[in-house]
Design a protein around this nucleic acid. Structure first.
Lengths: 237, 237
DNA sequence: CTCTGGTATATTGTATACAATCTTTCCAAG
DNA sequence: CTTGGAAAGATTGTATACAATATACCAGAG
């Protein structure tokens, strides 16, 4: 996948990549302060590149910067999540529509492989649950990113990368139960089918449903959890 | 309009705002190198805040940063423009759809006023053509931003701000001929009408047409111009 | 006991210095 | 005349120092 708007290709861009990773994977949990000097020593560099990475992460929405008061790992309210899923459905649906007319056999094969891997994994057992989630997220990313790539709109790719950059902590909910994974797999097959036939409308419709289904699973498990934590609960994820 | 992802609210954020303005208004034309020290002295600050502004502008797509080789004001190919208009139609169409269900009388009044101002301006003469373009761009922005605001999705607003941040030099083409302005005004009325009636589907359809029409006008005048410049022409805008 | 004000501390914001890297120039060899 | 390559110059990348600002803590008045 070509990278258009990445400001760098190497070196101090790594600081940004590492920070991003740390944020997405849940170190520095949502709401926690990101003191520059601490990040700097954590990452083994000075404050200067850290600052740039923070500015960039803020532009992407991963952190919030308050003037003279520093950066905070972004926390998400339920409304935020709803907004993001709404846009994801719009953008990925559009990507699927566009992809139907331009996707190459090679790209279809890649998606096919990812879909198959996700199906097979239902019968595998992983050493650690962590490994399993990692694998699932990975294969799922291949599936979705290939569609974005096939859509052939660089800006669209950039926007999707932004909106999907939500702390994984939330996305792992998807993969909790077997039944939901089966349904997700079914959607993957429907989408693949529509793309193979070049049916853009159907590809878009299935993609939208797929994403809304994911949203509902997430919100449901979220609600269940916050109910378990009992009352006095914030609306924050 | 609430600002969600602006990393600052003041001070050195001004450097960014000023840089952004310079870029959009065509100083530092597309393709020109943005040497940090020069920008710093132009803006009366040191390289440090300039660098941050550049990183941010790069995240927004206004400049490209090449590692160890500095920043360049982004130039746009025709394909880039097509991609952007495609996304604009998607996002603004969606915004119009959402707005139809939530727009307030106050917001409708604001749009109404902007539409009327654009219509009246057809019979006015301005001191300088520059003033006219500025006025038209302004009123048009009010119209479109109010819809985004009424849609009530912060991320959507942020994305639209990004995608509309194209050097004005291109957008001024819109306003060249009287006939085209009349048609634009007609679209504004149609959209307003649909929003007033709460008809989201129609609002979306009209918005999409409105944007595609603008795209076509731009591309046409662009083609005319590059033909005039004669052969040996780049595909760059 | 609470509130106000002021000082100390922590942290951010900016400038500057220096190191790393790229670009240009110029000269010599082919 | 072209090509290779080394040195000089320009510019970016990073670290550090200091100034500006916010926060925490404590004392004293009410």
């Amino acid at each position: 996948m070509t990278k258009l708007y990445t400001s760098d290709e190497s070196s101090a861009d790594q600081v940004y990549q590492r920070l991003r990773r740390l944020l997405i994977e849940g170190h520095y949990p949502p709401g926690s302060r990101l003191v520059e000097e601490r990040l700097a020593s954590d990452l083994g560099v000075s404050r200067t590149p850290v600052r740039q990475a923070l500015v960039r992460a803020a532009a992407e929405g991963l952190v919030q910067i308050f003037p003279n008061r520093g950066a905070v790992a972004r926390s998400f309210t339920i409304d935020d999540l709803l907004e993001m899923y709404d846009l994801r459905a719009l953008l990925e649906g559009h990507a699927a529509f566009l992809a139907a007319q331009r996707i190459t056999p090679d790209q279809l094969a890649r998606m096919e492989a990812a879909a198959a891997a996700l199906e097979d994994s239902l019968n595998h057992t992983f050493a650690r649950r962590e490994d399993e989630v990692h694998f699932l997220v990975e294969q799922n990313a291949v599936f979705h990113q290939t569609i974005a790539e096939a859509a052939g709109n660089q800006r669209l790719i950039a926007m999707l990368n932004q909106i999907v950059a939500v702390p994984l902590q939330f996305r792992s909910f998807y993969w909790y139960r077997k039944e939901e994974r089966q349904i997700s797999n079914f959607f993957h097959r429907s989408i693949l089918n529509a793309l193979t036939l070049g049916d853009g409308d159907r590809a878009r419709a299935m993609m939208r449903e797929h994403i809304f289904y994911g949203r509902d699973v997430l919100l449901q498990s979220r609600r269940a959890e916050s109910a378990a934590v009992a009352s006095g609960e914030e609306n924050e994820l």
